[in-house]
Structures are given as structure tokens and as C-alpha cells.
Design a protein around this nucleic acid. Structure first.
Length: 715
DNA sequence: CTGGGGTTGT
DNA sequence: ACAACCC
């Protein structure tokens, strides 16, 4: 909402001190007992970092991999590996050869195709966003969350404080949580978010709790894996100096550290003590101040909600490409998958206005450096074709790409490329329409729409309540109602939409039925796909995605469908056969495991995190919606089985459940826990409900129900 | 034998 | 268009 920066009308004590920093680090954190006012004086920032993310995704898909050393390979590199492999000396960014020397039984999976990782990554961000709107992504496996407002809210609801997880450099027992109320509350929120990630997505990770992004990130990795750590203000200087090399400061990259080294600065302490004037000469005032602040552990940068991506690119590297024909074919492949991705992403109708082609030329000397690119505008009608799934759009794009290519490489000259990249940028900011359709499509967005986010987070706050506050069932009901209402919008035409819980339940039942039929359908379809060819995935000049849509599918309608369902429709076989190396490990590995949790999907031989070197002893699984007694009961150290039996009623297909948006999942679970409204949704809502209406266009403009039924009709 | 993505700033 | 940063 527009008043999201609301806390600035009060005087804030903490902003001024940072600009003229010549003093030592501590911002003197006195959030005091003398000041019981709710005015937020200190931020509480979380950094969440998933454990060996790609490996975790693969182990979710095939739990047999949990017990073997697993590496994810891109070209000649191990980009990440599970902890079994790490115990045997495999590390991130190690060459495949060395990894295999250290660990001959290492199981390798190809990780060049990021599709599933990206999908899961956005599910995580989406889940976090459903609790709190201020979520910033950093890569695929890290998120910052600004939980200041949630903390302030809980501050008003409790006067009993405790820490969850570790405290940097200190013992929990010897530290008074009452002296660090906000960070203490933040640590509970961190634990809840991690528990939510585990129980709804089956993913584990670390968290850091601190007063800035910088500090939260630095502290989050103190105890790995799957643990969390708080940094108290009095330990800021320690953690900074403990870093040692300047290169380890986030924001100081290779170039900057080299320039600093040229100034004689190598350790964090060197930079802390360096006169600002010296830095200004080398870097200019703004960067100089920023660098010095970083060295002091000072970082005022806000958590900026990432929202929908601002660019989409697809690239491949190779040893050599030296003919125009090869360039054309590679470009075609890249464009096919890029366009496909854009359509997936394009639930909200964004249209790229710029296209860019990037190359890397081989050069023995400066192998790494040279990337060159050329870009051009995307004509409006082409953009239209792209996002509407028109079959000839890629042809136009290939033409554009080759023109751009020849702006960099002369037609007659010899060349040697080692990389090609195609990229859509300049995606226009989304304009939420005032119409009903706008509201509907906003439901389908990645949860990154501010409007959507705010709604969800408020809902969630009501659900979770604060420590010490037992959430009233009224709150739960109202919250559930709000989400049901959105489903109702989704599933009914405006004419039918009367308010009332009964209608809402029918709408929800319809959702379940529809999703159920499609997910079940695909399980029959998918089986025994090929062993992935050694070489590249998708063909040379393979069919455009349009051809893979069912014949009578309106692309516009298609765009409105949930992502998972879109993907299923586009590639029913979902070609993801376990590579040969995997087959040797477990002959039983199925052709394709649906990418979601649930007892029938993930056999869950052990609950996801339970076999990991145990998390912090105080980790509890406080599920949202369960108003727990005040925070001092944290001896509930045992983990409840997270992913398998988390309270989904027996008459609900876990597959169906898992395909619902994460926030809706939580709403439903909350409602089930309270034995509330939706529990009486009939279990036998099999596709008996009649599809009606066959007018595609009319359906697309109006309610979604007809369209959905058209796709998923039982026949 | 260093990947396949992303963002911001100039 | 590129360089820097992040993972």
C-alpha cells in the first residue's frame, strides 16, 4: 500500500548517525525499556540461505539420493553438492575431475537446466512473501526478509522474550533476551519461516537474524546446515574483524579488493582504520563511504522487494562455435526455451521491449573477460506474438538475433565463440487494472505484486498471531474467508458470485476437483521417459511451444493458469529422467517425480531434515496459525515429521494440495486445524461437476471457471 | 576444465 | 554497452 513507509512520520533516531561515520561501529543499540513506544527504532532483518539448494531439489525429486554423495554438475564443474559428498571432500565450485578423485562413488546430476531450481526458488520467495511483503532475492537460494513490522507488532503483544537458535559468540543461556527484544522476536520469526519452508516445501536452510542485510548475511552461515544465528549489536565489530580478508565482505568484489590491496588494505581492520579521504581519492565519495561503512558493519540499504524479474535470459557455453549455421541453431534453441519461459512467467501480461544477444569470444589470453552484446528494441507486434504464443514469433527473434550477431562478428571473418546468451529485458512495469480481471490475474502472479503481497501478509499476521497471543478462531475464520474469497473470484463468473461461505466452499471444491483431475491425468501420461541424451535437451529447431499446446487452447487463457498446470500442459512428459549415474544407484527411480511434497510423492523415508546433524536444539516447529504460549516454552526440541503428515485430511489428495499456492495451503491447514469451514468440503468432488460453456473468448474475458473446465474436463 | 543465471551503476 | 556485484 502507499503508506508502507509509514514509520517515517515519527522521528527516527537511527538514520542520522550513519552518514558521518568516523566513530566506531556500535550504533549503540538502545531500544529501551525507557521507551515503551511502538515507534520502530531498529530494523530486524533476516537472511535465509537454503542448504545446497540444487542438491536439495534433486533429493526431493528422488529421496534415494539423500544417502549417497551427490554432486550437481554444470559442464566441468560441481556447482553444489549434498552433505554426504562434502564429508568426503567435495566442495562447491570444484572441478568434476577433482571431485571424482576425492569421491569415486560421487553421483553426478546435470544441472545446466535451471528450470526446476528456478521454480522451487520462486516457491520459496513466494512463501516468504506470503508472511511478509519485504522479501528480496539474492540469487536462487537466498532471501532477505525485513521483519521489522512483524516484530513491532509482536512487541505490543508480549513481554516475555527468548532466543531461538544460536547467538553469535555467546551462549543462549547466558544472554538475556529481554535486552534484545526485537532480535529475540526476529529469531522466532526466522524459526517459523524455516519451519514453514520445511513443512510446505521440504526445504531446509540457515537463517541469520540481525539489524541489517549485511550483518544478517554474514551471521547466517555461522552454524550450518539448517540452523540459525542471531547477531547482537555488541558483536558487530567482532564479526567484521573475524572475516579477515576484505574479499569476504559482501559488496567487495574482485576488482574492488584488488584496488584496495593496491592501497595497502588487505584486512577488514585495515579498511576500518583507513582515513576516509584516502578512499575518496581512489573511489569517489559515495563508494568510499559505502566501503568504509561496510567494513564497520554498517549497512543502511533497504530490503527492496524483488518482485517479478526484470530480465530473462538463457545461455549456453561450449568449446567452440565457429560457423554461422551453428550460431543460428544454438540461438534457435536458446530462444525456444526463453520464449517458453516468458510465457510461463507471463501470467500478468508483461511484454519485453528489448532483446539482447551476448557472445563470448575465445581468446587464449583473457579467456574470461570478453563478453560483448548488442541489443535492439522488440517491435510491439512481435512482443505481442511472443507472449501470446504465436508460432512465428521465434522466427522473428532469430532474425533479430542474427542481425545483432553480425553487428559484432563480420560476416566473412573467422570466429570462435564459447558462449551465446539471449535475453529479454525492459519488461514494462505491470499496470494493475481496475477491472475484475485485474484482480483475478493478480491472484495468479508470483506473489510479487505488492497488492497481493500485502493482502496475504496481513492475513498471515492474523493467522500466526504473536507469541503469547492465542489466535482467536474468529481471526482464523476471517482470514480463511479472505483467501476463499479470492478463490471464489477465481472459480466463478461475476454473475454467480454471491458472497457466502457455502458458495466459497463450492468454489474451493471446484478448484480441488479441477486441479486433481489434471494432476492425476498427468501421472498416467508420464512414465518411462527416455534416458536423457548425453547432449542437449530440446532438439535442434524443435517444435515451437505453441505446437505443444492442446489444439483448442487459447494462449490467453493458458496464461491465466497456475504455473504448474501450464507446465504440465506444455510438456506432459516433463522430460526429466534420472541420468544414468543415478540409475545405478537406485534402479527403482521413477521416470518423473512430480515436483511437490506429499506422502505419495516423496516417500519420505525420513522426514527431510531429521537426519541432518540436528539443528539448533531450540528449534521448534511452530506452525503458523497456532498461537503458541509465550516464547519461553522452547524445550519442544523434537521435530514433528514435517513433510509427510502435516495435517492434511485423509480425503484430500496431497498432490492436489501441494499444487495450491503456498499461502492457500497454509490457510487450509489453519482451517483444518480448527476444524473450521472448509473441512466439510466433500471428499467426493470428483469431476462430476459439469463443464459448461464452450465459448473460449467469452470465458477468457469473464470468469475462469469455464476455461478451467474446458482444459480439465474428465473426458 | 569457471556455470547459468540475476541486479545495479556508469 | 559494459563493468561491477551477487549467488
Amino acid at each position: 500500500m502507499e503508506n508502507s513507509d509509514d514509520n517515517s512520520d515519527e522521528e527516527n533516531e537511527w538514520t542520522t548517525g550513519f552518514t558521518d561515520v568516523t566513530l566506531e561501529p556500535h550504533p549503540a543499540a538502545v531500544h529501551g525499556k525507557h521507551n515503551p513506544q511502538p515507534t520502530p527504532t531498529h530494523r530486524v532483518i533476516l537472511h535465509l540461505d537454503l542448504d545446497c539448494f540444487y542438491a536439495q531439489v534433486e533429493m526431493l525429486r528422488n529421496p534415494a539420493l539423500r544417502s549417497v554423495p551427490l554432486g550437481i554438475q554444470q559442464k566441468y564443474m560441481i556447482v553444489t553438492c549434498n552433505y554426504v559428498a562434502r564429508e568426503q571432500g567435495v566442495t562447491k565450485l570444484m572441478s568434476v575431475v577433482e571431485a571424482q578423485q576425492r569421491c569415486p562413488q560421487l553421483v553426478l546430476l546435470r544441472g545446466e537446466d535451471l528450470t526446476q531450481y528456478r521454480d522451487m526458488s520462486y516457491r520459496v520467495t513466494e512463501l516468504l512473501t506470503s508472511y511478509c511483503p519485504l522479501v528480496e532475492r539474492l540469487g536462487f537460494d537466498e532471501n532477505y526478509v525485513d521483519v521489522t513490522e512483524m516484530v513491532e507488532r509482536r512487541l505490543t503483544q508480549t513481554n516475555c522474550f527468548s532466543f531461538q537458535g544460536h547467538i553469535y559468540n555467546r551462549s543462549v543461556a547466558g544472554t538475556n533476551a529481554g535486552d534484545h527484544q526485537r532480535l529475540a522476536l526476529g529469531s522466532h520469526i526466522a524459526a517459523e519461516l524455516r519451519a514453514a519452508m520445511d513443512s510446505t516445501l521440504g526445504l531446509t536452510g540457515c537463517a541469520g537474524v540481525a539489524t541489517s542485510k549485511l550483518l544478517a548475511k554474514l551471521v547466517s552461515g555461522t552454524f550450518k546446515p539448517n540452523q540459525q544465528t542471531i547477531l547482537l549489536p555488541e558483536d558487530v565489530d567482532d564479526i567484521m574483524r573475524q572475516l579477515g580478508g576484505l574479499r569476504r565482505v559482501p559488496g567487495v568484489g574482485h576488482q574492488t579488493s584488488k584496488r584496495l590491496q593496491a592501497l595497502g588494505l588487505v584486512s577488514v581492520q585495515d579498511l576500518q582504520l583507513c582515513p576516509l579521504a584516502d578512499l575518496v581519492k581512489e573511489f569517489g565519495a559515495p563508494t568510499a563511504q559505502r566501503l568504509k561503512n561496510l567494513s564497520l558493519g554498517i549497512d543502511t540499504s533497504p530490503v527492496t522487494p524483488t518482485g517479478a524479474p526484470q530480465s530473462l535470459s538463457d545461455e549456453d557455453s561450449f568449446k567452440k562455435i565457429s560457423t554461422a549455421k551453428e550460431v543460428l541453431e544454438k540461438t534457435q534453441d536458446l530462444l525456444n526455451s526463453l520464449v517458453e519461459r516468458l510465457v510461463f512467467l507471463n501470467k500478468d501480461g508483461r511484454q519485453p521491449q528489448t532483446f539482447r544477444l551476448t557472445i563470448r569470444r575465445y581468446s587464449a589470453d583473457n579467456k574470461w573477460f570478453s563478453r560483448e552484446s548488442r541489443q535492439c528494441p522488440v517491435p510491439h507486434h512481435i512482443g505481442q506474438k511472443i507472449i501470446s504464443g504465436s508460432s512465428d514469433a521465434p522466427a522473428h527473434l532469430v532474425t533479430m538475433a542474427m542481425k545483432l550477431f553480425h553487428k559484432m562478428v563480420e560476416g566473412s571473418a573467422a570466429f570462435h565463440l564459447t558462449l551465446l546468451n539471449v535475453c529479454f529485458t525492459n519488461l514494462p512495469p505491470r499496470v494493475p487494472t481496475a477491472t475484475g480481471k485485474g484482480a483475478i490475474t493478480s491472484f495468479f502472479t508470483h506473489g510479487t505484486s505488492p497488492r497481493n503481497s500485502v493482502i496475504m501478509s496481513q492475513t498471515q499476521e492474523q493467522l500466526s498471531g504473536g507469541p503469547g497471543h492465542v489466535c482467536g478462531s474468529e481471526d482464523v475464520e476471517r482470514s480463511a474467508q479472505s483467501v476463499m474469497t479470492q478463490h471464489h473470484f477465481l472459480m466463478t463468473t461475476p454473475a454467480e458470485s454471491t458472497s457466502g461461505s457455502e458458495t466459497d466452499q463450492h468454489a474451493l471444491a471446484a478448484t480441488k476437483s479441477v486441479v486433481s483431475s489434471v494432476t492425476r491425468g498427468r501421472q498416467g501420461v508420464t512414465c518411462s521417459t527416455q534416458a536423457q541424451a548425453e547432449h542437449d535437451s530440446t532438439s535442434g529447431g524443435g517444435p515451437l511451444f505453441e505446437f505443444r499446446l492442446p489444439p483448442n487452447v487459447d494462449p490467453e487463457v493458458f496464461r491465466e493458469l497456475p504455473e504448474d498446470i501450464q507446465r504440465e500442459l506444455l510438456s506432459p512428459a516433463f522430460p526429466r529422467a534420472p541420468p544414468a549415474s543415478c540409475a545405478s544407484v537406485s534402479g527403482d527411480v521413477p521416470a518423473r517425480r512430480p515436483l511437490c511434497f506429499g506422502s505419495d510423492k516423496y516417500p519420505a523415508p525420513h522426514p527431510p531434515a531429521s537426519q541432518l546433524p540436528s539443528g539448533s536444539p531450540s528449534d521448534s516447529h511452530q506452525l503458523p496459525g497456532r498461537g503458541d504460549s509465550p516464547a519461553d516454552v522452547r524445550s519442544c526440541g523434537g521435530r514433528q515429521a514435517p513433510s509427510s503428515g502435516h495435517g492434511v485430511p485423509g480425503d484430500v489428495d496431497p498432490t492436489v494440495f501441494s499444487e495450491l499456492p503456498p499461502d492457500v495451503q497454509r490457510e487450509l491447514m489453519a482451517a483444518w486445524r480448527q476444524q473450521k469451514p472448509v473441512s466439510k468440503v466433500p471428499s467426493s468432488v470428483k469431476p462430476e461437476r459439469k463443464p459448461f460453456g464452450k465459448d473460449k473468448k467469452a470465458a477468457a474475458k469473464g470468469g475462469q471457471q469455464n476455461n478451467l473446465y474446458k482444459y480439465f474436463k474428465p473426458g
